[in-house]
Amino acid sequence: MKVRNTAIAIGIGAATAAGLSLLKVNKDFVVGTTAVVVGAGLMISLKDKNDLSLKGRNYEYFFNRAQDKFELADYEEAILDYNKALELSPTEICLVYSMRGNAKRNLGDLDGAISDQNKALDFDPLYADGYFNRGIAKFKKRDFDGAIEDYSQVLKINQKDSDAFFNRANVKKEIEDMKGACTDWKKAAELGDEDAAKLLEEYSE
C-alpha cells in the first residue's frame, strides 16, 4: 500500500486569506508526500490584533514542531504538539486532524486514526487525503469494503489519482477480486505508476 503523509510549513502573517500550493515531493518515500505551504491566511476573526498575532505564532510553532517530530518518526511527541496546535488553532483545520490521524496510525491506534480522519472530513468533505488516509487505516483493520469505498471517494474527487487506483487495486487483490485489481492497476499504470505496471504484468492473464 502507498501512504500519503502531508508535510506542511505554515507561516501566519496578516489575517488574510491565502491559497494552498500542493505539490508532490520526495519520490523515495513510498509515495510522494504532499507539501503544503499556507501563507498568511486562516481568516482568523479575532478582534484584538495582538491576540491574533500571539495565537497565530503559537499555533504555527506547535504545528511545525509536530511536523518535524513526525518526520523523525517520534509520533507520540508529534501527537502532543498536534493536540496543542488544535487547542490554539483559530478554526478546526482538517490538515492537523489528518496528520494526527497518520501519527496514530503509525503507532497502531487504528480506531484513533479513523476518528481523526473523520474529523478532518467533517471540516472539509472534499478533502481527498482524508479519505485516502482513512482507507489505509481501514485496510490495516481488514475493513476491505470500507477501504474500497474510501479510495473510490478519492477518485470521485480526483479521477487522476494514481495512488488511489493503486491502493484500491491492492485491496481488491486481498479479497481475490483479481479482475478488479488488474483494472485499477492498469488505470494507475496509465497515469504513470511504475509499481502498478509491474503488478499488472505479474498478475494479468
Rank of each mutant, 00 (worst) to 15 (best):
V36W: 03
D111L: 05
K138H: 04
D145V: 11
I44D: 11
R134C: 02
T16M: 13
L110I: 04
K69S: 02
Y97M: 01
Q117K: 09
N102H: 14
L22K: 13
R134K: 06
K69R: 14
A73I: 01
D109C: 10
R57Q: 11
A147Q: 04
K47A: 07
T91K: 15
L54N: 09
N58F: 02
F144D: 10
Y59T: 06
G101L: 02
L23F: 14
I12K: 09
E87C: 08
L22W: 08
A85G: 06
A18V: 08
V31T: 13
V36R: 07
Y127H: 03
F132H: 00
D28P: 11
D74K: 15
A66T: 02
L54F: 08
F144Q: 06
Y127A: 03
F132I: 00
G146S: 11
F123V: 12
D74G: 06
N133L: 01
L88C: 10
A35P: 02
Y97A: 02
N26G: 11
S89Y: 00
T16P: 04
T34R: 11
T16V: 14
E87T: 05
D122H: 05
A40Q: 12
Y75R: 09
I79Q: 06
L126Y: 10
G135N: 04
A113G: 03
E71V: 12
E77S: 15
Y59I: 02
P125C: 01
Y127R: 02
R105F: 00
A120N: 05
T33A: 11
E92A: 14
D109E: 07
D150H: 05
G108S: 09
G112V: 08
K119W: 02
N133V: 03
E76D: 15
F29L: 12
V38R: 09
D116S: 06
G39P: 07
K138T: 03
I93Y: 13
A66W: 00
S53H: 06
D124M: 08
L80Q: 15
A128N: 04
K69Q: 12
L23E: 13
T16C: 11
P125D: 01
A66C: 07
N83I: 00
A73L: 12
L110G: 02
E71G: 10
A103V: 00
F139A: 10
R134I: 01
S45E: 11
M99N: 15
D68P: 03
K55W: 04
G112A: 03
R100N: 00
R105K: 13
K69M: 05
S21I: 10
L72A: 15
L20Q: 12
D129K: 05
N83Y: 02
D81T: 09
L88Q: 04
G146D: 06
I114F: 03
A73N: 14
A66K: 07
E149M: 09
E77T: 15
D51M: 10
L54G: 02
A35M: 11
K140H: 07
A147N: 06
A128E: 09
S98H: 04
A78K: 01
